[in-house]
Write a protein that binds this DNA or RNA. Structure first.
Length: 654
DNA sequence: ATATGTGTTGCAGCA
DNA sequence: GTGCTGCAACACATA
């Protein structure tokens, strides 16, 4: 818990409780800290932060979940105290909070300590603004089993890079705290009328522009169109309707958890590698991840409900599963990624400059900017945080770009990959092992495309997107950090059959309806299906996915490459990259001279001096950071889904 | 020091 | 269904 000096006043505290990604009332240590102040009044505030609205790059599905969480919080507040509701205010916290401090004569600002690099910079700035206003700040960790900073400290100040380190470090810290009870009462808010000018959202880019049916309208008025602090609608944000069937909010989260725990056998013997990515009705895992992301479920509540069940089960003399494969083990991995993120900060989510991420000469390498990458110190001196430029990448190979777009579209011609990608896009959730399959395929086990391209697509589509976990898992699967056995490669033909060919076939047919009538034995490799049988199934394996129908037949694309061949090329490439032993912070990586170490014919953008320089840092003005380096104009991230067809059409050659 | 075992979740072939 | 092996082979901790 961190505190700053309080206003010298004998009055009872007047508190803003600033909700962020802790959208719940059960086990909220920060909320408890606020209530422990015995405040005269408590203002539950949600800042409608332009950074989140414009730069978090969430699609309609994740927005739907967020809005449901906010609704649920507001309803719970009303339930506990009819005078309360969530005060949603449409402005960024850096400009808004100081105005609120004054308007409401606030003595304390309380919030849950945040974890990702942007939020930590923001909170450093907020802390300073509060100091200037004489407002005491109380922030308490609550997002993870252990405070990530404590975890790092217990790990010798180093990022937690494997589960053994997490287990050892956590033993030093002690037990996971028991969850805190839901508050029985919450004091009234004070006077909530606000007569303030709205600072307009800053001029930064709207990274979600292409996802909107019309531009965002949510900033029309500070406290909502009707002046009632209303939670914006999907329509105000301009997004198309969500397609996911998953739901957000604390009530849903607790009900889902209860359902899991009720099945004591499932809970006590859960082994992640045995659960099926091909199960979808119902899924084979708990599907609680989006609740953990939004904080509608406390990970410590989850942990102890599971652990108590496991302990009871064990007492009955029955065999239970253990970390890392057990349910509690999954939460430990989550803490591992938060620990890596806490130690590495902004650099964690990129290769360049990252001391713990291997350098591999991937296709479509990220271009990285130095803006906002430094420290909380720089951020703290700004009035508001300057938006980072939109991620961009070099198209070193038009072929790899097509592969990437077809991967994104779910038109690779590998049915298991396509089914997973389409499930991801529609539902915002796929099984963890499904994520493994498609991530391996895009990076080290197929396309040899930069893991950051994949991470960006997941960021847009996942309802449970969590920077630390997403980035960490992409590094894991691309064998750039956390994991290194790159010769263990997922096969789009074999992997989905592991849980039964029939179940795999059902899964594929559900999400790739073109294949709905194909005999199960061909479903993973439909090119093996004789043409006559394809026609009987009402479809043809033909083309590159840009055309959906030909005459009376539906079309499903041919595989976009020979998987066995690509697998060989990728493993060879990975072996070479491992031999070089470069990490993201190596000077040769930063200045582009890494090329000299790789043979010209190596996979990836390695060839010749005229070739694109991957892995280059630009500064704010777009100049090369290192003398003599030439930074080619990066291609802007390909427009939305619709424009991809053109890209694919151009490749008609094959 | 060099060898060995282990690491959440590979695949193919076989018993 | 389950569990072995050989495949080719990485990083790291421990003996």
């Amino acid at each position: 818990m961190t505190k700053t000096k309080q206003k010298s006043s004998g009055d009872k505290p007047r508190v803003i409780y600033w909700f962020r990604t802790d959208l719940r009332f059960h086990d909220s240590p920060a909320l408890k800290a606020a209530l422990d102040l015995k405040p005269e009044c408590l203002y539950p505030v949600w800042c409608w932060d332009p950074h989140y609205v414009y730069r978090a790059r969430g699609g309609p599905n994740r927005w739907k979940i967020l809005l449901e969480c906010l609704d649920d919080v507001s309803e719970s507040l009303k339930g506990i105290n009819p005078k309360q509701k969530l005060l949603l205010i449409r402005e960024g916290p850096i400009t808004l909070l100081p105005k609120l401090f004054k308007a409401w004569n606030i003595s304390h600002l309380v919030f849950e300590k945040d974890t990702d690099a942007y939020a930590r910079d923001r909170d450093t700035r907020v802390q300073e603004l509060a100091n200037n206003s004489g407002v005491e700040v109380i922030s308490v960790y609550g997002r993870t089993l252990f405070d990530p900073d404590e975890l790092v400290k217990a790990n010798g100040g180093k990022p937690t890079m494997n589960i053994t380190q997490v287990e050892r470090a956590s033993e030093k810290i002690g037990h996971v705290p028991r969850p805190i009870d839901r508050p029985k009462s919450i004091p009234d808010p004070g006077k909530i009328t606000l007569n303030l000018d709205q600072d307009p959202p800053n001029d930064g880019p709207d990274w979600s522009f292409e996802m909107r049916k019309h531009p965002d309208k949510s900033y029309s008025k500070l406290v909502g169109p009707k002046g009632d602090f209303a939670i914006p609608t999907m329509d105000e944000v301009g997004l198309l309707p969500a397609t996911t069937r998953h739901k957000g909010g604390e009530s849903v989260a607790l009900a889902s958890l209860a359902k899991v725990i009720k099945d004591t056998n499932y809970t006590a013997t859960f082994e992640k590698p045995k659960t099926a990515p091909t199960a979808f009705e119902p899924p084979d895992t708990t599907v609680l991840s989006h609740h953990l992301h939004f904080g509608s479920l406390s990970c410590r509540e989850f942990y102890w409900r599971v652990q108590d069940t496991v302990d009871r089960y064990k007492k009955q003399g029955k065999k239970t599963s253990q970390p890392p494969t057990s349910l509690t083990g999954q939460l430990l991995f989550r803490d591992m990624y938060f620990g890596a993120q806490a130690a590495l900060g902004h650099l964690f989510s990129q290769t360049i400059g990252n001391s713990h991420c291997r350098f591999v000469p991937w296709h479509l390498p990220a271009k990285v900017s130095t803006v906002n990458k430094d420290s909380a110190k720089d951020a703290a001196s700004a009035d508001r945080l300057s938006p980072a430029p939109e991620p961009a990448y070099d198209v070193d190979s038009t072929e790899a770009e097509q592969w990437f777009q077809r991967w994104r579209n779910g038109t690779t011609g590998f049915p298991f990959v396509d089914a997973l990608m389409r499930q991801l896009k529609t539902e915002g959730w796929i099984h963890h092992l499904g994520r493994h399959m498609v991530a391996c395929f895009l990076t080290r086990g197929g396309c040899y495309v930069d893991w950051q391209r994949g991470a960006e697509v997941f960021e847009e589509w996942l309802i449970d997107h969590e920077v630390a976990c997403n980035v960490g898992n992409w590094q894991w699967l691309s064998c750039t950090a956390f994991y290194s056995q790159f010769y263990r490669c997922y096969s789009p033909y074999a992997f989905g059959k592991k849980w039964g060919e029939a179940q795999g076939a059902r899964f594929i047919k559900r999400f790739v309806p073109e294949l709905a009538n194909m005999p199960d034995k061909y479903i993973f490799e439909p090119t093996k299906c004789p043409i006559s049988d394809q026609k009987k199934a009402g479809m043809l394996i033909k083309g590159d996915g840009s055309q959906e129908q030909e005459g009376e037949y539906k079309l499903y694309p041919k595989p976009m490459f020979d998987f066995a061949e690509r697998r060989e090329i990728c493993i060879r490439g990975m072996k070479k990259a491992y031999e070089m032993g470069l990490y993201g912070n190596n000077p040769k990586v930063l200045d582009g001279t890494w090329r000299e170490l790789f043979p010209d014919e190596a996979e990836g953008p390695t060839e010749g001096k005229g070739g694109p320089r991957g892995a280059m840092i630009e500064n704010n003005e777009g100049e090369g950071r290192f003398e003599g380096s030439v930074v080619p104009k990066g291609q802007k991230r390909g427009a939305g889904q619709g424009t991809l067809d053109g890209m694919v059409k151009r490749s008609k050659r094959n």
